[in-house]
Design a binder for these strands. Structure first.
Lengths: 134, 134
DNA sequence: CTGAATCCCCACGGATACTG
DNA sequence: CAGTATCCGTGGGGATTCAG
């Protein structure tokens, strides 16, 4: 037993597709998953405990919250502080680099919002004349 | 036969986790996949044909290049022009909105580059004292 | 050359139960 | 409360083949 090591989680290794990559893949791999951005957005509002994050982000499972925060901590974007009380208490907050990224994300969010309508329009327009879907 | 419709490709429906989403998910779902950003980056340099994109982006399969460009076209970020010659020829170029997004991506790429070293350092540091991995 | 169609693997992530 | 461990379904995406 204990032979099956199912989750080694080496986020599928370096992509390093090419130098056109701009080295942006590192960031995108983190931003690309469903939850990291939300966690960062929530933490941008201030320090949160595990359960607070869990509540603030409807739909995320404990498992994914754990994994997501872990990865963010590993990347130096989030700082984790454990108070050895009983019951235990953990606080998460953005690091300086995390806040820096948060700002960059906000920029992208602004772009997203200001073009949301156009994208939706383009999609419905495309969908209209492509009944088969993608 | 023809009963099994395996790939309907409705990119797993609206997430709409919550309003904290900032509506950024629409964009992130596109940027999150492995190839869209690279296609945009390449097209930012100018018009490209299908085969040119295929060569410019090592590692991408024909299938994924087709799907990626299709989705970008659907979102109104890329424009597709077909010349009914023989053999056929297709040109892809960014739309105004596509160039706008490209600029936003460049910003993020800049952030990524300027913090690449710090992230790498944070990771190796974390990995050093966490032998078990994530 | 530019795709569309098929097959198929496996990583992502949800649900649940257990621990300190 | 804050995770960890296990099981398992879904679908993203690679490889290959066919078509216009």
């Amino acid at each position: 037993m204990t032979a099956e090591v199912h989750e080694v989680y080496e986020p599928h290794e370096p992509h390093e597709v090419c130098e056109d990559d701009c080295g942006i893949r590192d960031v995108l791999d983190r931003l690309g998953d469903r939850w990291s951005v939300l966690v960062i957005v929530v933490l941008a509002k201030g320090t949160h405990r595990f359960s607070e994050l869990h509540q603030a982000i409807p739909g995320i499972s404990q498992r994914m919250l754990t994994l997501t925060t872990k990865r963010l901590v590993r990347d130096g974007l989030v700082e984790r502080t454990v108070y050895p009380t009983v019951p235990p208490q953990t606080e998460y907050r953005l690091t300086a680099m995390g806040r820096s990224l948060s700002a960059a994300i906000t920029e992208l969010a602004n772009w997203s919002r200001s073009h949301k309508a156009l994208i939706a329009e383009a999609r419905s327009h495309w969908d209209a004349e492509h009944p088969g879907g993608l």
